[in-house]
Amino acid sequence: MTAAAWSTVADVASIVLMLGGAFLCFAAGVGVLRFRDLLARMHAATKPQVLGLVLVLAGLALRLRSGGAVWALVLVVVFQLLTAPVAAHLVGRAGYRTGKVSPGVLAVDELTAELDRRHGMPADDEDGGSGADIG
């Protein structure tokens, strides 16, 4: 194929990837509005943060097709892959400690048992009940 044809293919692939990333942004908006508690909302928020960003920036790289800009986009993706887990961990930890995570909805809860074992206290919900006690 000629160079012009390849350019058209790259543009079409770029807009398809952009549409995918935009749909993930939309899905995250719906999820964060509709889901019930903090952890479910964090789950919804992760979609555009990693996969959506990768799709959108891959689409942008296919459209720009210049060396320096593409490396900067790779840098953005790598940085996001490094920082998104850290931010999510901190938000989840703060949510657990301030009573936003109710143990009843968790399928696996290793942290509560571990904290109880370390503190040598009975499995009384110091985390889930604190919010309700104050209110």
Binding site: G29, L38, R41, P48, Q49, L53, L57, R63
Partner: peptide, 26 residues
């Protein structure tokens, strides 16, 4: 309901902003 929910929501807003700027650039 809580500050953390707002943090998560504003994270999504920032990500949407990144996507919009990327769309404009492309």
């Amino acid at each position: 309901p809580s500050m953390l929910d707002r943090t998560v929501a504003l994270d999504i807003v920032v990500t949407c902003l990144v996507a919009a700027v990327a769309l404009y650039a492309s």
